[in-house]
Design a protein around this nucleic acid. Structure first.
Length: 294
DNA sequence: AAGTCCCTCAACCGCCCAAGG
DNA sequence: GCCTTGGGCGGTTGAGGGACT
């Protein structure tokens, strides 16, 4: 017996979201919080699958999202974490506040993967490519490389750009080896070494000094948990509780701001008349914040 | 200027897992 | 313990836009 589809396929709209749909979804979640995604489309008046709504919200509309390319530090962190965790993008994303698994996955596939290949590192195994040439591998990344990249693989020592972050960052903290040194004889730290370092910080992953330091250097982000609103019927959405000052300025300036800048509609168009005064004050802030960006 | 290629990333699909009954 | 259900995850696709010829 087949599973019941997550939503009625008939009459469900697919493809890019319109501003109008975004508006409805945002409005609904801001007033009702996240609950029962399956019911969201119906309640919000959207002809979308619940999963689609969740994805749209978590990957694009959530106000605590950072936008733009990953910084070098973030990219390095992704590489380290990937060496440790593999393609568990959500786990990796959870280490990068304001980033989504989808975003990281895309960035990995479009940027980091290529960068590692150019550095002569197998993005899957994090092993040096020339080292792998000697042993048969089912996942033969190198064989699919463009010719130029394969050459790079053989000449990895020369082609590693100084500005390019290294897989070795983790142990650089505990050793005096420069990236250049690591990329020569020991040629980029092996997966094992990276894992050792990461393991050393314990299964208690939050103790990772590298991660901690990176995280500390970021402006406080609204943790995803903030958006997992515990929605009891008589509880207003947590994020717009007037006592909820947390990091809202950051949220608004850096994250909500883009939304109102980029989307083709104004605050009024959101139909947020339904929100109470403290909530509307938020949007005043957004407006002034956006003015600064202009 | 037009056509083609390539790259990026938002979105979808299908599977897996955990929670609840 | 089994079944159902909803949410989450990772892989993949395809539209759009820029680069190249």
């Amino acid at each position: 017996m087949g599973r019941q589809p997550c939503c009625d396929k008939l009459g469900v709209k697919k493809g890019p979201w319109t501003a109008e749909e975004d508006k409805k979804l945002i409005s609904f979640i801001l007033t009702n919080g996240q609950c029962c995604w399956r019911a969201v489309p119906k309640l919000a008046g959207l002809r979308r699958c619940g999963k689609s709504c969740r994805l749209r919200w978590t990957n694009y509309l959530r106000p605590d999202l950072k936008r733009g390319l990953l910084s070098d530090a973030e990219e390095q962190l992704v590489i380290d974490l990937h060496a440790h965790l593999g393609n568990r993008w959500s786990k990796i994303a959870s280490r990068l506040p304001g980033r989504t698994d989808n975003e990281i996955k895309n960035h990995w596939n479009t940027h980091i993967k290529k960068k590692l290949l150019k550095m002569g590192i197998n993005p899957v195994t994090h092993e040096p490519l020339n080292k792998e040439e000697t042993k048969p591998t089912s996942d033969d990344q190198s064989s699919t490389l463009p010719e130029s990249d394969q050459k790079n693989g053989q000449q990895q020592v020369q082609v590693v750009p100084q500005s390019t972050t290294q897989v070795t960052t983790s142990e650089e903290q505990s050793s005096s080896c420069s990236p250049t040194e690591n990329s020569s004889s020991s040629t980029a730290t092996t997966t094992t070494e990276v894992v050792v370092v990461l393991d050393a910080v314990g299964g208690g992953e939050d103790d990772d000094p590298l991660l901690s330091s990176l995280l500390e250097n970021h402006a406080p982000m609204a943790d995803a948990a903030q958006w997992d609103l515990p929605l009891s019927d008589n509880q207003p959405p947590l994020i717009f509780d007037e006592n909820h000052d947390l990091s809202m300025p950051t949220l608004l300036d850096d994250n909500f701001g883009w939304l109102f800048n980029c989307q083709d509609f104004g605050i009024q168009d959101f139909g947020f008349d339904c929100l109470n005064d403290p909530e509307m004050h938020i949007f005043d802030t957004v407006d002034s914040g956006n003015d600064h960006n202009k």
